[in-house]
């Protein structure tokens, strides 16, 4: 007798897969990564290779050790590693960058149950940890002419820069943050592919721009320099650590934008977007609950307890 498949319906599915989505994210990160590597040369390449490679290796080793389903081939670890690398200055010690990457994968991601279970963005958490541990290394900037200098007030870095310098990355900064054009290109690609919703980045950048306008700051400088764009496009759209509905994403984006602004303006930390995203990550379960859509035909809103 011929063997026929027996399986619950439906018996068809999209060709989309986790890997395909992660591959697109990596592709979207490429313009800004390549620009960073051009600007900073071998240093930047080494940092990116170290963080990405370590992330993938750590995940494979961890999952093999504990007999878990191997998820490294889906590319999510590579995305985490690459994002961390892009958030580091090019002169950052390669071994510490690798250590940060391992921390992101093991402590922030795997200890919470792996892909889909972590509540904070692994790459940004690792970046914050490195920031606290390596104050000086994290603020050693490489200038376009090749010399390096320690500047703690990040805002001072880009003060003399023109619009085009900021767009094309002709400025000191973190590897992936300097080239605004590259980030925008990646973001547009992801939106067109339907992988990210424009809601969170738009709300993020929009609310930040609005507050800057009210305060009378230079919009070009505020929006194009620092980690704002990068975080809005690649961190505030991370599936796992952001709300699932469009309303939720908008709330999340507005929260990120406002927090970024206030942190950079009133806090001692000029580059507030990273912290803002991390803080908003903690609000995701709450936002998800409040913005849950009402089930068709149900009288009682889903978010309320009916007993």
């Amino acid at each position: 007798m011929k063997k026929l498949t027996v399986h619950p319906s439906p018996l068809t599915n999209t060709k989309n897969s986790t890997f395909q989505i992660m591959f697109c994210v990596i592709a979207a990160l490429m313009p800004t990564a390549i620009c960073g590597c051009f600007q900073f040369g071998l240093d930047a390449v080494m940092v990116l290779l170290a963080t990405t490679g370590t992330a993938v290796l750590t995940e494979i080793i961890w999952q093999t050790l504990f007999g878990k389903q191997l998820t490294a081939p889906d590319g999510s670890a590579a995305v985490t590693g690459l994002i961390l690398g892009l958030c580091l200055p090019p002169s950052f010690p390669v071994y510490w960058a690798a250590a940060g990457s391992a921390f992101a994968i093991i402590v922030v991601k795997q200890l919470f149950g792996g892909i889909g279970k972590n509540f904070a963005n692994p790459a940004l958490t690792a970046k914050t940890l490195l920031m606290l541990l390596f104050m000086q290394e994290m603020h050693t900037w490489t200038f376009p002419d090749g010399h390096t200098e320690v500047i703690t007030e990040t805002a001072e870095l880009t003060q003399q820069k023109s619009f085009w310098d900021l767009m094309l990355g002709n400025t000191p900064g973190c590897i992936g943050h300097i080239c605004a054009a590259g980030i925008i290109l990646g973001g547009v690609f992801l939106i067109l592919k339907g992988i990210i919703s424009p809601a969170a980045p738009a709300a993020f950048i929009g609310s930040f721009a609005l507050l800057s306008l009210i305060a009378g700051d230079s919009l070009t400088l505020r929006l194009l320099s620092g980690s704002l764009l990068f975080c809005a496009v690649f961190a505030a759209t991370d599936y796992t650590t952001t709300p699932v509905t469009v309303t939720g994403k908008t709330v999340f984006g507005i929260g990120c934008g406002c927090l970024s602004y206030f942190i950079s303006r009133y806090g001692g930390y000029a580059d507030g977007s990273v912290l803002a995203v991390l803080i908003m990550n903690l609000f995701v379960p709450l936002i998800d609950r409040i913005t849950a859509p009402r089930v068709f035909g149900s009288e009682i809103p889903r978010s309320s307890e009916n007993q």
């Binding site: 989505i21 892909i115 599936y239």
Partner: peptide, 15 residues
């Protein structure tokens, strides 16, 4: 061929 399932990563497409 039934596809291999992997962990949910909260993409929200099902919603």
């Amino acid at each position: 061929k039934a596809p291999q399932k992997s962990p949910c990563f909260r993409c929200g497409k099902c919603l």
